[in-house]
Design a protein around this nucleic acid. Sequence first.
DNA 1: CCCGAATGAGACAATCATGTCTCGCCACAG
DNA 2: CTGTGGCGAGACATGATTGTCTCATTCGGG
Lengths: 183, 183
Amino acid sequence: MTVDREQVLRTAAALLSRKATATMDEVAKSAGIGRATLHRHFAGRDALVKALEELGIREFEAALDAARLDEGPAEDGLRRLVAEIEPAAGLLAFLVTENQLFEGAHVNEGWGRLDARVSAHFRRGQQQGEFRIDLTPAWLTEALYGLIGTGAWAVQDGRVAAKDFQYMIVELLLGGARRNVEQ
Amino acid sequence: MTVDREQVLRTAAALLSRKATATMDEVAKSAGIGRATLHRHFAGRDALVKALEELGIREFEAALDAARLDEGPAEDGLRRLVAEIEPAAGLLAFLVTENQLFEGAHVNEGWGRLDARVSAHFRRGQQQGEFRIDLTPAWLTEALYGLIGTGAWAVQDGRVAAKDFQYMIVELLLGGARRNVEQ
DNA sequence: CCCGAATGAGACAATCATGTCTCGCCACAG
DNA sequence: CTGTGGCGAGACATGATTGTCTCATTCGGG
């Protein structure tokens, strides 16, 4: 009988990533619960978005841990990271575009930690000669976020097959569109 | 004394791309006009977004024309396209995330035309051996949109220098992050 | 079996954005 | 100089969303 808070959050993320202006009532309906119950668990819309933000940060951090970025070649680490992040891609796509989160007085410090870890990985790849040094780690980090979001939308809308999600993102991010003659 | 409709649209685009939920009053204020005047020119919020959509489509199409994609190597055409699109990047970033535009009954057919032209360019590049064939033209098109939007945000937030906008996008999209030994 | 906790449905007021209106002002053309 | 058209400010009603509350119901543990 008790509501599964985690499940509600995941349903809300799926809905909001498609329709960011969805009503609290729509969120509740999509989760199969009443609006009153939704309010019992999340004080209001802000609290719901905040909870989604924290869930997204947790999942991203878990993906970073699971990817073991410091082991082996940086390229392989990036592949593992994208693979680990795929289930949370829709949620992250929503959070990245929810710029309301980034205009308030105090931004959740979790994003800073995530940015630092991802940037550090790109920097390590550059120092080890795997990655180009003319693209800044900050930009590569942003581009990774952007491509994950774009990929999530493209899959949701059927423009890209779900099974190709990881491959398309990683291959584009690592190798680009240009064909290399020796390959 | 007469309001410059085009200028209002550009100001609105700049504001809405940062804060998608901005009020009609905020849009009016940011354009330096009264809310009543804004309503005289755009019947309502929907009409405003619709006008922004058509402006974005016009600018994108103008950029496609100016880029002369069918001339010379596909890679050079892509560089010209990104250069031409830069001024409209913020507007496009807003429109792409305004998924309200794509859930209604009839989606503006302009997007289909744009997608077709961009996809065709990537396909030509593949057929001429310039681009990889394991990344679909549809995905490359989506990725281009995504990177343009990501780049626009990164510049707005100061995470990437404005002068690097074109270079970062084109180099990542074409060459990827991996360092090629022979280069 | 019984009781309590949690839920769903709905009523309710408050808030906010919207759309429309009026009124006074000002610039510019005639 | 005068009239007219466009504008800004603001009032107003409306509709939608939100947040809170009550009440009946149901599930599950003791």
